[in-house]
């Protein structure tokens, strides 16, 4: 056998290992669902503020966040057990986002029901937490573009904290579409990629 053939074999082995190691399977579904939860909540809150229906806001979030957790803990649990591949990257990815999801739920609850956090600061804090999540996720999955997404979240977070206003809710909703649902669709494309590695 030629040396070049052995080099090709080794490169092929490495690419197979690399792809399988980084395979995140159906994790993108959580992002889409939570993205819809976030956009619904932000737009609903904006409309409630604009129309003076302040009492609706906490319940709007209770229902939307409750729906998100129901999906992640009940509906998606079944899908996870049937994932085509189980690997360390998907486990770490799930762990990061469950941890951050609990953090965001607590922050939101404390802000809405106790006033422990200034409501106008919540959007910026959410964006900064998302930035940390994407940075860590990109790191464990070896996806550099996801770390670029984190920078977008951090920049948006600084803007939202520096210029707090009700229209920040619209900015955050737009960020969720571009920087959460967008990356989720990219992960979906990676998971569905049909580039079989034929010898």
């Amino acid at each position: 056998m030629h040396e070049s053939a052995v080099h090709e074999d080794l490169a092929w082995i490495r690419s197979l290992m690399d792809e399988s190691h980084r395979f995140l399977g159906g994790t993108w579904r959580h992002q889409v669902v939570w993205g819809i939860v976030g956009v619904t909540g932000m737009l609903g809150t904006y409309v409630s503020l604009s129309t003076g229906r302040f009492g609706l806001i906490p319940w709007l979030w209770v229902v939307s966040i409750g729906g998100g957790w129901f999906y992640s803990l009940v509906v998606a649990r079944r899908a996870e057990t049937s994932a085509a591949v189980r690997n360390a990257a998907a486990r770490a990815f799930g762990g990061i986002w469950i941890g951050l999801g609990v953090t965001l739920t607590l922050l939101g609850g404390l802000t809405l029901f106790t006033g422990a956090l200034e409501p106008s600061a919540l959007s910026g804090v959410i964006a900064l937490v998302f930035g940390s999540g994407y940075f860590a996720s990109g790191f464990v999955a070896g996806l550099r573009w996801m770390q670029g997404v984190a920078v977008g979240w951090w920049v948006g977070g600084v803007v939202l904290l520096y210029w707090p206003s009700p229209s920040g809710l619209l900015l955050l909703a737009a960020m969720i579409v571009v920087l959460e649902i967008g990356p989720a669709l990219r992960l979906r494309a990676i998971a569905n990629r049909a580039d079989t590695l034929r010898g």
Partner: peptide
């Protein structure tokens, strides 16, 4: 063997994998 090597390479980098995933990756 090219196919067995591919299967070993994939399984070496994951906890476990379904038959269909292996089939699609290996071709």
């Amino acid at each position: 063997s090219r196919i067995r090597l591919a299967v070993m390479a994939i399984l070496a980098s994951v906890d476990d994998a379904e038959f269909t995933y292996l089939r699609d990756r290996v071709g």
